[in-house]
């Protein structure tokens, strides 16, 4: 990206902190691998959030102290974690019953692309030599009530990740509710991308230039009369 972008937009940690603001007290939450994992660090004081990891634990805690871990107590990213007081272990069918059955309140995931209608692509670039691997991503987006995406606004090459239509293979159809990027917070509505918030120092035009579909400005509702989902 050009020099203009330097210093503009939120850091990964600040993005995670912004997501955490929108997680309500008492929520059961699944965090995807990567940037989403950072969100757990920033849950505001006074809120209790219970983290689910699809390999069989509710009440997941932070990484263990050096040398205190158990190779059989891991998260979905296969990293060692801890179990908080009040945690529960269960098998995979129960774990995905929690997901598919709509018992989890929120899932925060990364993305390769998000389309204006909420389609998500986050499991494959479709490259012919890639080994296809999906894990639990399709189950999570199909089953969890609310899906947040946390991602850089653009790829490393500067291409928009928020697009009119995903070009990568889909993870789910019309599943994303809200996108948190380094530049903005954007809701998916029946009318498309609705800007909710701009990061400090970032203008509407700046975000629009880096978005592959029209953005509806903050506070405006489109004349088509679309309503939020």
């Amino acid at each position: 990206m050009s020099e203009l972008t330097e210093g503009l937009g939120l850091t990964r940690d600040a993005m995670a902190q912004r997501v955490a603001v929108d997680i309500r007290d008492g929520a059961y939450v699944n965090l995807g691998i990567g940037i989403p994992e950072l969100v757990a660090k920033y849950v505001p004081e006074g809120r209790e959030v219970i983290y689910h990891t699809e390999n069989g634990l509710l009440g997941m805690g932070p990484s263990p102290e050096e040398g205190q871990g158990d190779p059989e107590l891991i998260n979905a990213g296969k990293r060692q974690v801890t179990a908080n007081l009040g945690a529960a272990f269960f098998h995979h069918a129960d774990s995905f019953a929690m997901i598919r059955g709509g018992h989890l309140d929120l899932c925060v995931l990364g993305a390769l692309q998000v389309a204006a209608n909420g389609d998500l692509a986050n499991w494959s670039t479709g490259a012919p030599d890639a080994i296809p691997a999906v894990g639990g991503a399709m189950d999570l987006v199909a089953g969890v009530k609310t899906i947040y995406v946390i991602t850089q606004h653009c790829t490393k090459n500067g291409d928009p990740k928020l697009v009119e239509t995903c070009s990568y293979p889909l993870t789910g159809l019309a599943v994303v509710d809200r996108v948190f990027t380094d530049l903005a917070v954007i809701d998916i509505t029946d009318s498309g991308f609705q800007l909710v918030e701009l990061s400090p120092g970032v203008s509407f035009d700046y975000v629009q230039e880096r978005t592959g579909a029209p953005l509806i400005p903050i506070g405006e509702t489109p004349s088509s009369g679309g309503t939020e989902r």
Binding site: A93, R100, G135, M138, L173
Partner: peptide, 27 residues
């Protein structure tokens, strides 16, 4: 998909030949 894999195994063990899931629709 991981949840479908788990449920396919559970179903197999429970004598259920098939089931419907919303996972992977449109993918």
């Amino acid at each position: 998909p991981q949840g479908t894999l788990a449920e396919r195994i559970r179903a197999g063990g429970a004598g259920i030949p098939a089931f419907y899931t919303q996972t992977a629709v449109g993918t």
